[in-house]
Design a protein around this nucleic acid. Structure first.
Lengths: 171, 171
DNA sequence: CGCCTTGGTCTGTTCAACAGACCAATCGAG
DNA sequence: CTCGATTGGTCTGTTGAACAGACCAAGGCG
């Protein structure tokens, strides 16, 4: 398999990243982890994928150090590690690109830098303090491009509401 | 297929992006297009994938408006569209994450903002002018984490040398 | 001119995701 | 306390995607 062996030197950084998060569904799982999803069944409810693939993906992300398993209120929970949280700029950039190419009414979701009370720009940067804040300092809410369709399930309805990134949906 | 139908509202921006660039190999093709690869056989030489998959991927990226076909010096060429170029922040972020998680000696590749003669930071931002420059204003060269292995082929050797992003390797 | 390169298309094989069944453990409501 | 629902998986056969290699037409170059 070329992806696993093509170490042709300095320009394989992207391949390295994709070895970890490039499998089908992985980045969507990471995104949901940022939004506060922690439970196996909640990840499944969101993505509607087979339990076998979900189990394998979560296992791979845990093994790669992107997620770790914890116990929340007597339940298994998958939460982002610091290394996983460092994926925020990439996830945000892809989301904004997705919005720019498919939404005529602007971003579907906005992110506010809580300490500065200002929305970050398309590059994820706070216009007040000038930094690119980590996910832990952001709150999300629906943007102008947000859909008007009813959410697919109560979980997605909850995730649509304004809330802090990384705050677990359930404890 | 869940990816194609899961429009659960405002938070499907990432899914939209991944519908376009989430197939296996697609982001690596986009990265190579940023580095100046334009030819079918050069893309293939770089990734060592089957021609059937390469043809299908390039076709999908053209149809999605990320790449367009042109004639360069009597040859077919695939070049990034403005929409494709807008993927730079995401590609750069993933590369830097790949470096951060797998390279102990820093980034494998550095990017210099040509007008300011300064390297962009981990967020892709120029410390001199404060902007996040587009790919067209950047030059790349090997970084401290660059491999010391001989490149896999002359093409990769060429791409390792300092050069402007988006400048076609061959005309 | 002839050979090599280019840019594919096609087909059988192997690998990955899907669909659904099964199971053990835990939780929560009556 | 009991029982049904929920949780978090594992397993297996089916379907879809990537791989490996063959074939072909057109163009470029020595």
């Amino acid at each position: 398999m070329a992806l696993g062996t093509d170490y042709s030197g300095q320009d394989c950084s992207l391949a390295k990243a994709l070895e970890v998060v490039g499998e089908r569904w992985s980045l969507l799982l990471v995104r949901d982890a940022f939004l506060g999803v922690t439970r196996f069944s909640d990840f499944r409810r969101r993505l509607d994928i087979s339990k076998a693939v979900l189990s394998q993906r979560l296992g791979s992300l845990v093994e790669a150090g992107v997620l770790e398993r914890r116990m929340h209120g007597g339940h298994d929970a998958y939460v982002l590690t610091p290394s996983g949280e460092a994926l925020w700029p990439a996830v945000h950039a892809l989301m904004r690109w997705g919005d720019a190419t498919t939404s005529t009414r602007g971003p579907r979701r906005l992110f506010r830098h809580v300490p500065c009370d200002a929305d970050v720009d398309v590059f994820g940067r706070c216009p007040v303090c000038g930094t690119t804040p980590p996910a832990a300092e952001l709150e999300t809410r629906p943007g102008p491009g947000a859909g008007t369709d009813p959410p697919a399930n109560p979980l997605s309805a909850r995730l649509r509401e304004p809330h802090r990134l990384l705050a677990p949906l359930r404890e």
